[in-house]
Design a protein around this nucleic acid. Structure first.
Length: 281
DNA sequence: ATGGCAGAAGCATTCTGA
């Protein structure tokens, strides 16, 4: 099962590029961020004609997320409201559409567009940290239910200095600060694994390049789009790749798609995992 | 320290992003 994430920076402007990419790669699930469109104006048909179901959670001009899936989805949720422990003040996050989830093939897909945060010591930065703390509580709730999780999207955080082309220049800056990294780690805890880092330990791999200053041509990028999976899914993980090809399109998104291959049909592995569980008990 | 590039809204320019 191929699961992809892509911040497309406007689904309507990028529509033909997204369709071309789907035709080339044939993902089972594609999670979009920054769709920048209200639900009734989302271009559903081009995806439905290719055999996909489209679940949207958008707003005017900004933000907006969607899950596009070939496989039947269940238990769709949108936003934090109603899914968090009582102590979390979620009302402040209702205006911005940044979270959509669906259960697909036994995996809870959690598609997020984490706030950018503007700069440290700004109101938007506080919003970002508070939003991540809510996401952490949201995952606590999912964990209680024992769900297998795939948390993916645009996190607007480079998890380590290896994920920035020039870490010295951006030391402690937005998307690179310890505060943000700690907030991200508090979401992941010990339960979620960065798919990309299972395969690649070195620096030099980016998912976002600024439109400005010829950043892509100079390969000055950041790795801020991530696919995190439950520990229990790591034995099913076959690959994780960043496809930088769409960044070379005319009028591209500033982000590249990231994709994993999860092999959920390996009955032998299921058998051995059950055996392990048995002996642990 | 600042702007640079891009999209949406809407028609000049501002807001937002990362």
């Amino acid at each position: 099962m191929l699961i992809a994430t892509w911040n497309v920076n406007s689904v309507r402007t990028r529509l033909s590029q997204i369709i071309n990419w789907i035709n080339k790669v044939n993902p089972d699930i594609l999670c979009l961020q920054e769709t920048k469109v209200i639900d009734k104006d989302f271009p559903l048909k081009p995806f439905e004609e290719l055999g996909y179901e489209v679940i949207v959670f958008g707003q005017k001009s900004y933000n907006g997320v969607a899950i596009i899936s070939k496989i039947k989805s269940e238990n769709v949720t949108k936003g934090f409201s109603g899914y968090l422990a009582d102590h979390n003040d979620v009302n402040q996050f209702e205006d911005q559409k940044r979270l959509i989830t669906a259960d697909i093939n036994g995996v809870k897909i959690i598609n997020v567009y984490v706030p950018n945060g503007s700069s440290l010591h700004s109101e938007k930065f506080d919003y970002k940290i508070n939003w991540l703390n809510c996401l952490s509580s949201f995952l606590d709730e999912q964990e209680k239910k024992g769900d297998l999780i795939c948390l993916l999207g645009d996190f607007n955080i480079a998890p380590s200095n290896k994920d920035i082309h020039d870490p010295q220049r951006y030391e402690g800056a937005i998307m690179a600060s310890e505060i943000e990294r700690n907030a991200l780690n508090n979401v992941l805890k010990e339960r979620l694994i960065d798919s990309f880092r299972i395969y690649e330990k070195n620096t030099g791999h980016w998912s976002w390049w600024d439109y400005r200053n010829n950043a892509y041509e100079l390969n000055k990028g950041w790795r801020i789009d991530h696919i995190y999976i439950s520990k229990a899914l790591t034995s099913k993980l076959k690959s994780c790749v960043i496809d930088s090809n769409p960044r070379e399109n005319i009028q591209p998104s500033d982000h590249a798609p990231v994709m994993i291959n999860l092999d959920l049909d390996n009955s032998n592995e299921d058998y051995f995992e059950e055996e392990e569980d048995f002996f642990e008990i």
